[in-house]
Computed example of a mutant assay.
Amino acid sequence: MSSLTSTIPSKRIGIILGSSRKGGNAMGIASWVSAFLKKNIPSDVEVVLVDPITAPHPLGPLLHPQMPSLVKELSDYPTQAIRDWSTFVSTCSAIVVVSPQFNWGYPGELKNALDHLYYEWHGKPAMLVTYGSRGGAKCAEQLRQVMGKGLKMKLVGRDVLVALSHDYIAGQERVKGEDEFLKAFEEPLKEASDELYELMGGEANAPA
Rank of each mutant, 00 (worst) to 15 (best):
M1Q: 13
S2H: 13
S3W: 07
S6T: 13
S6D: 15
P9I: 11
P9Y: 05
S10M: 11
S10I: 07
K11R: 14
K11T: 15
I13C: 07
I13G: 11
G14P: 04
G18K: 01
S19K: 06
K22V: 12
K22G: 14
G23D: 05
G28N: 08
A30E: 03
S34G: 14
L37P: 09
K39G: 06
N40T: 03
I41N: 02
P42F: 05
V45Q: 09
V48S: 08
V50N: 13
D51K: 10
P52T: 12
P52Y: 10
I53R: 08
A55C: 04
P58Q: 08
L59E: 06
P61K: 05
Q66P: 07
Q66C: 10
S69R: 09
L70I: 04
D76V: 07
A81G: 10
I82C: 04
R83S: 01
T91M: 04
S93R: 09
A94V: 00
A94L: 00
I95N: 08
V96Q: 10
V96Y: 04
F102Y: 15
N103T: 12
G105T: 15
G105Q: 11
P107D: 02
P107Q: 09
G108P: 09
G108K: 08
L110Y: 10
N112V: 05
L114R: 04
L114K: 00
L117I: 08
Y118C: 06
Y118Q: 05
W121M: 07
P125E: 08
M127V: 13
R134E: 11
A137T: 15
K138R: 14
L143E: 04
V146H: 06
G148I: 05
K149G: 10
M153E: 12
L155T: 09
L155K: 02
L155V: 03
G157A: 10
V160Y: 01
V162D: 02
V162Q: 01
L164T: 00
S165G: 15
Q172A: 15
K176D: 13
G177I: 08
G177L: 08
D179L: 00
F181K: 03
K183S: 13
A184K: 07
F185M: 02
F185R: 04
E186S: 12
E186T: 08
E186I: 03
E187F: 00
E187W: 01
P188F: 06
L189R: 00
K190N: 14
E191T: 15
A192S: 15
A192C: 03
S193Q: 00
E195M: 00
Y197V: 10
E198Q: 13
L199M: 14
L199H: 12
G201C: 07
A204E: 13
A204C: 06
N205M: 10
A208V: 03
